[in-house]
């Protein structure tokens, strides 16, 4: 068993969206939807200005609110901590979409709820997720939090700061952002953006 997690170093992310494009190609994400997207946010006021490029996707929460609300068990958490959807069980009721605090799920036109899987099919082959493999700045790393040899630990130890999205939701995300450009960390709402 593993406890899979992903780190994204925002100090190195340039928002090129290669990860998003790789995800679409790898997972045949239908047009008009996304398992992964980039949020670009201008922060501060001249001359103290920065831009946050923030890739967002399913955080594969340790306590995923999308799982217990599912009436058929389609939305589930694997022993390795992946939050996945069994399409054949999904009735497309969207309860999981309602429960997800991160807009990480969408309705696949084929009639089931879809989301990032951390490329579980690639993990099964011993490969990294497509978004990690394709990132040109190397700002993403994927691994097992329970594995002391995983590069995750070195990245975490060297990070100036570590943030998660909406920690107040109590979801314990396993996608963590390192070195957020703003000293205020990740902003949840437009109203919190420095200006």
């Amino acid at each position: 068993m593993a406890r899979y997690a992903m780190l994204i170093d925002l100090a190195a992310c340039v928002g090129c969206a290669a990860c998003a494009a790789a995800c679409v190609l790898e997972n045949e994400v239908p047009p008009g939807h996304g398992r992964l997207w980039i949020r670009q946010r201008e922060l501060g006021a001249f001359p103290d200005v920065t831009v946050e490029y923030r890739p967002e996707q399913c955080l594969h929460c340790e306590r995923p609110p999308c799982v217990p609300v599912c009436p058929t068990g389609a939305s589930h958490q694997t022993e390795d901590g992946l939050v996945l959807v069994r399409a054949e069980r999904c009735i497309a009721c969207a309860a999981c979409i309602a429960a997800c605090p991160y807009d990480a799920r969408f309705m696949n036109p084929a009639g089931y709820v879809d989301k990032c899987t951390f490329c579980e099919h690639r993990l099964a082959r011993g490969e990294d997720p497509a978004c990690v493999e394709t990132c040109p700045t190397g700002c993403r790393v994927f691994g097992d939090l329970d594995d002391p040899e995983s590069p995750l630990h070195a990245w975490l130890a060297e990070a100036e700061r570590v943030d998660v999205l909406r920690p107040e939701m109590g979801t314990a995300p396993k996608l963590l952002y390192l070195n957020t450009p703003s000293k205020r960390g990740l902003a949840n709402h437009e109203s919190e953006v420095e200006s």
Partner: peptide, 12 residues
Amino acid sequence: TTFYGLPGAEAF
């Protein structure tokens, strides 16, 4: 704030 790609934020 702008986006590249689409978060799943439309009405469900």
